[in-house]
Design a protein around this nucleic acid. Structure first.
Lengths: 249, 249
DNA sequence: TTTAAAATCAATCATAAACATCCATAAACA
DNA sequence: TGTTTATGGATGTTTATGATTGATTTTAAA
């Protein structure tokens, strides 16, 4: 078994639980104790986990802000369905904003070619260019974890644009403040982009969102949530109490 | 079996899984161990995959650069020597500008960590982030071919910055207008960045540049050309007629 | 709290696999 | 024809791995 394979198995094991025992990893990978130990040392040096007596523990920081590659392996099926539906909403000639995030990333294959896209996602811009789509990237400071453009420069760059539609990942909505993004700078960008757009769409690939979670967005702007599996009762609550529409992909 | 065919098989194998063993590739392609090894070295240089002990692994940030990777490995050798020298000129604490281009791209591994980099290259920003370097990307329109940021927005983004040093690719110098970049917008960015920098360095990986080619830059700003193999006579002409310095890597 | 047993750890070593390098051959090229 | 290029094999060298050793930590009983 190759080293990256083992490392992936170890990291995957830490996704479901907070800690993992050395013996478990030995069985999972069919490797010797020595090898696992060496792997753990490497992964700890790379700041992927913390070694503890008897095994390894997940890092706190990584949990709050999972990287795009980790997220993209999860729920890919549901994500794609939602992304495809969202992509179908974009019409030729549109000028749209795409938020930096793994769910939005999945939209790109389903976009029509004859549009203009503004984004703050480095990876997104790269993918869009490969799809021959006219792409503008807002400037600013690059966030290492999510490869998203943030900061004062990014906010100012946004000022120049107006969008027909904007598409946001749902993970950025906070119950109290309107966003769950750990980074307030990234949240600012989201909010600004929504305010510059005629229509706002939020892609929720996991149905574990609550009514209150979106209330702040509703205050700011009319928005539509696109999801795949929503409790009908919750959906009714949305309709009656907020100006947020909910559609199923 | 032809080389492009093998390369495609290798890359296809990595599409379905994260890693592939050398032995698998030998069977898949009916080639020898040596050949596969050479292929993997090439593909790694082209940033298509990462070589690991026992085989190859898919790159995490799946940013691929078909335009840059097609360069021959010969040029790459000379390019790296120049890039390494250029990188050694950067000191901790510097704020530098990196032009979008394959030569400049090679500098990145040789940069110290404790610096701030502003760039207009999408791929450059991605690579810099992976090297834990604080990175700012100027906004604007993304050019599909070179993945460079250009246009009005990019120019305006630049206004905010001042650089200790800037590094430019030599292919952008025009005999008459000072630049050979086919795209005048890209040339504008170069010129602007140079004017914002205390020192300007031009990396010439091919010695087929002429005196006149740099005259316009000399008019604008003092600059240093870094190259590997320069005709001594030509070098003398530079010294006597322009304010451009020439150094060998 | 002290002590002993068990578990886990770090360090070392031998081995087999993988590696880079070199060289010979054959094909493509000029 | 001579030259370059791609390939496959042979070579020592390096690396990853698993086992072994003794040191350290945890656990639990006295």
């Amino acid at each position: 078994m190759l080293e990256p394979e083992r490392h992936q198995i170890i990291l995957d094991a830490l996704k479901s639980k907070n800690t993992v025992k050395l013996q478990e990893l030995i069985e999972l990978t069919n490797s010797s104790e020595s090898t696992i130990r060496r792997d753990l040392i490497q992964l700890e040096q790379g700041k992927f986990l913390k070694r503890v007596h008897g095994g390894a523990a997940r890092l706190q920081g990584k949990l709050q802000e999972p990287s795009m590659s980790e997220k993209s392996s999860k729920n890919l099926q549901a994500k794609k369905a939602i992304a495809q539906y969202a992509g179908s909403l974009v019409e030729a000639g549109d000028c749209i904003y795409l938020d930096a995030g793994s769910t939005i990333f999945e939209m790109i294959p389903f976009l029509p070619e004859d549009i203009v896209v503004v984004t703050n996602g480095l990876m997104h811009a790269n993918e869009l260019l490969d799809k021959k789509i006219k792409t503008l990237l807002i400037g600013g400071h690059c966030k290492p974890t999510t490869k998203a453009m943030i900061g004062r420069g990014a906010l100012e760059s946004l000022e120049y644009y107006r969008f027909d539609k904007c598409f946001m990942g749902a993970n950025g909505v906070h119950p109290q403040f309107g966003y769950t993004t750990p980074d307030p700078e990234e949240a600012q960008i989201k909010q600004k982009a929504i305010s510059l757009s005629r229509e706002a769409f939020i892609l929720a690939d996991e149905s574990k969102f609550s009514e209150i979670a979106f209330s702040k967005i509703a205050d700011i702007h009319a928005a539509t949530i696109i999801t795949n599996d929503l409790d009908p009762e919750l959906k009714e609550q949305f309709h009656s109490k907020t100006n947020i529409k909910v559609v199923l992909a």
